[in-house]
Design a protein around this nucleic acid. Structure first.
Lengths: 356, 356
DNA sequence: GTTGGAGGTGAAAACGCTTACCGAGAGGAT
DNA sequence: ATCCTCTCGGTAAGCGTTTTCACCTCCAAC
């Protein structure tokens, strides 16, 4: 009647019911498209009369209307989603951070797109580009950076491109990417741990230093070793072994450590997961823990609270870090900001005081 | 000159460089929009000449073009993202599943949108609607269902709406939602565990049954109890206590269990996390583990492999389950399919053979 | 020397929404 | 009374793609 060909677009037979669009809602409510949009989007700039708003809302409910987020994204020029890039979501370190991010994002009305790099630079870079394609509002890169200039440069370039097009970024880790960062004070944390352990009477230390080029691993190692040096205790290079950041890494590295430095009293693993793996290995080798060999870790992973003996470690508020990173990532400030998170030493049974 | 107001749309000053669009690429390459689109999308229906394709590709590279996923979604009527809904991403059970899903999704070129319900029905429902708004290609609901008809009905209705509009769904848990499911054989797993423990000589069992209305918890409990009944062993109702699915849940529930059934020899907690919490509580109460009280769990969480004594449990291929659920979720088959995952009993030190 | 295809290319119409911009009525100030 | 301003609704122009037609050119076959 009125229109030309808009006739039989929607059939009453619900064979494969097409979704209701905003036009449908507008027609149903007897208002224009614009009014329908304004009525449903709360008071975005303009207000619509109460009567109309209710009428439109009712029509929308009746039609079971759900707005098309993609169309909205396009029309608005921005989305309501945050990209979260982690190294390994199965690692409790990252899953805790993810819990914090999802909580904060949810509270702000954002959806979270999860990308799991599996510790692969190339994949990480690729994900940044994908997120850019999706016009994600912000990206959070969780996890320590590597000492790899080429990879870092490439990543920086990708992030620059993303930011030039209106995206914002935050990193949880090291502040080397030129973006806002939640920085973990790894050096301070492990120094405090070293001091505390020294106070307990330990003098001969071994370190499971994690992956060679991993900055977090490196910071924790040097923080620990340097603090001991200041206390007059030397950690010989032979007593520092590298390995993967995993349980298996700790497990296999223990043998090497004991071979190279048989007289250590305490092993500091730069994360809890490795520490626990190493502790198991020690026990399997017939060593009494902590009597024969003491262990300390870093992170204070919740799932590991019940290992026995309870693990001495540096507590990190992982979920909180995720929560903190979210507003940081969303903030379009010209100058990158930095939030420092300090760990807290938790002395437990795995490092009993040592009667000199 | 030619157009009307298209003049100074793009300024050479790169103050805030606007992103290149496909039109820009087309203009740069000297072809039409249509050709540019076809050239970049591989051979979608139509082929473009090799020369042109290369020219367009070069232009795209030169302009650093990245397609707008939202616009593509709109034009194509579908997206390349999968929604993953979990109860608690910080729980290793779910983070392992998430690892599997991200791996499979990544391999298929899909992005993953993560939603963390924090065990809240309302939030779960809300996320389904959000994902529908985003026109997610598929949704994976991970985690056991509740015995709550109202919530299940609402969820079913939401999923029906989503599927009517072209979405596809899979569940990891119970097959009660009318969609494809990766079903865990909880009954079989705990029955096998019960049988094995009975074989070791245990006769007096306590059960930490988890949340009352949680179907997974319930299946594991009844599977265990029924199997024992078949073996002639009775688990008195008093020896079955409910609690949250967490470490704290196990921790606090132990006292109640010991109060109500002081003579139990072995506590079966329906998941590892609770088992470990309970084990700790027992030790704190001065009980020798496993000598004074033995423990068994369910799931075989990797992070918990190093608790001491090593926990007897039923191994579940969690990551694999996530991987399996992905194609299931993507499949638009009319009939829901069901994949059954069977657990495998792993007897370890927490349940030594009992000399009758 | 026509004619019927292929094989490529382009113009333009969607996709579903937001948001200037415009216009009409209502109410207040002069 | 008249003019101005304010409010609130509608019209229509995008947003960046994909995709349907329509068209053109070049060849092979008759």
């Amino acid at each position: 009647m009125t229109g030309t060909a808009t006739g039989r677009r929607r059939s009453t037979t619900k064979a494969a019911r097409a979704r209701a669009t905003l036009s449908d809602v507008a027609r149903e409510a007897g208002v224009s498209l614009a009014t329908a949009s304004r009525a449903l989007n709360g008071t975005s700039g303009r207000a619509v009369g109460d009567g109309l708003r209710e009428r439109v809302q009712a029509a929308a409910d009746r039609l079971d209307y759900s707005p098309d987020a993609n169309a909205q994204a396009m029309a608005r020029g921005r989305t309501a989603s945050i990209g979260l890039v982690v190294h390994d979501i199965a690692d409790p370190y990252f899953s805790s951070i993810a819990a914090g991010v999802t909580a904060a994002a949810d509270a702000g009305g954002y959806a979270v797109t999860l990308a799991n790099t599996q510790h692969d630079h190339v994949r990480e870079l690729h994900f940044v580009q994908t997120l850019q394609s999706q016009r994600a509002r912000a990206i959070i890169l969780a996890g320590g950076r590597q000492d790899d200039d080429e990879a870092n440069d490439r990543l920086r370039a990708a992030l620059r491109g993303y930011r030039e097009q209106g995206g914002t970024v935050a990193v949880i880790g090291q502040a080397i990417l030129g973006v806002s960062t939640v920085r973990v004070d790894n050096v301070g944390g492990s120094a405090a741990l070293a001091t505390a352990l020294h106070g307990l009477g330990y003098r001969r230390f071994g370190v499971m230093a994690g992956p060679q080029r991993h900055l977090t691993a490196r910071e924790r190692t040097t923080g620990f070793v340097d603090a001991l040096a200041r206390l007059g205790v030397d950690v010989p290079p032979a007593a520092v072994v590298h390995s993967e950041f995993t349980r298996t890494g700790g497990n296999t590295a223990l043998a090497e450590l004991l071979l190279r430095a048989p007289d250590v009293e305490l092993v500091f693993a730069v994360n809890d997961v490795m520490a626990v793996g190493a502790m198991s290995a020690a026990r399997d080798a017939g060593i009494v823990v902590p009597g024969g060999l003491a262990f300390a870790g870093f992170d204070d992973i919740a799932t590991l609270h019940d290992v026995n003996p309870a693990l001495t470690t540096v507590h990190l508020p992982l979920e909180e870090m995720g929560r903190l990173a979210t507003p940081l990532a969303l903030d379009a400030a010209a100058e990158p900001r930095e939030v420092v998170v300090t760990g807290e030493v938790r002395l437990r049974d795995s490092t009993p005081a040592r009667s000199a």
